[in-house]
Design a protein around this nucleic acid. Structure first.
Lengths: 146, 146
DNA sequence: ATTATTTAGTTGATATATCAATTATATTTA
DNA sequence: TAAATATAATTGATATATCAACTAAATAAT
């Protein structure tokens, strides 16, 4: 059976695209001078958008392990960007809340992320974006566990 | 300025596709019973294909930091899958070689990887693959540092 | 030829990824 | 209701990611 060198496959191309996007996004974020990662910002955005979200749901949304989420939140709490408290109704759960400082950071970071997206999508039509979305979806369907 | 929720963007879709592919690939690889990661296999494949490759080149190829490569190779050496020796001509460099045990592992792992790729690309035509490749390339170009 | 700069690789510190085990609580089942 | 099971989150162990500092050797500049 023929074996294509990894660097010539579509998966390599996907990795390269997302890797470069992440790097570019991080570089631009760093210019805010906040010492925060893109992933931390994305985590905070989810908390802000849905204040009653659980850490399990956060992990699924961000394609991370719950253990990673626990530790990421720990850091954000330590830096006073997120507040964590016990949920009164289900005491296994934690209530997460963006602090004032966290909110100010998000206000600055979100425009940067918007700009990053625009940069990465430059010269791509709506049609092309939709095609890309659909083709990636095929891979997602093909690789989803049944 | 309008801000799209992260999970609705093309970048989220890319992350999801590659993440699921990696997970599926790792699960299938694990069935060989070897306790080795996809990334380790990809690293070994590069070494096998180009025996005089440097660790810097490996890092670039695999989108990793040279420090990560150093430690990955350390592990592979510890498990007797890769051999590392000083390069006689340029003594800063290391000569990397797949061991007999490593070769046997690759012989088993490569068909698995081929199968993973086929699974992930199921129902995708050559045209579609090419389109996907080109669209991703736009992002790669847009996000490459000048 | 000596000095300065660049390059290849390693190491340290800290954060994140992954898996397994554990704790505490909630829910389901007998 | 008591016991069994499931769920949310944490913790431990180990590997990997990232950045900075460092060592050793090669190459370029003076």
């Amino acid at each position: 059976m023929h074996f294509e060198s990894p660097s010539k496959t579509i998966f390599y191309q996907i990795e390269k695209a997302i890797k470069q996007y992440r790097t570019m996004a991080q570089v631009n974020l760093n210019q805010l001078g906040y010492n925060v990662t893109i992933n931390q910002i994305l985590l905070m955005i989810q908390i802000q958008q849905q204040s009653d979200i659980s850490q399990v749901e956060l992990a699924n949304l961000l394609f991370k392990d719950v253990a990673s989420v626990t530790r990421m939140i720990e850091l954000l709490v330590r830096e006073n960007l997120v507040q964590r408290a016990e949920n009164k109704i289900d005491r296994r759960k934690k209530d997460l809340k963006i602090t004032k400082k966290g909110g100010e950071l998000l206000n600055k970071a979100i425009p940067v992320i918007s700009k990053n997206r625009a940069t990465a999508q430059k010269n791509m039509s709506e049609d092309e974006l939709q095609t890309l979305f659909k083709l990636l979806n095929k891979i997602i369907i093909n690789t989803s566990k049944k």
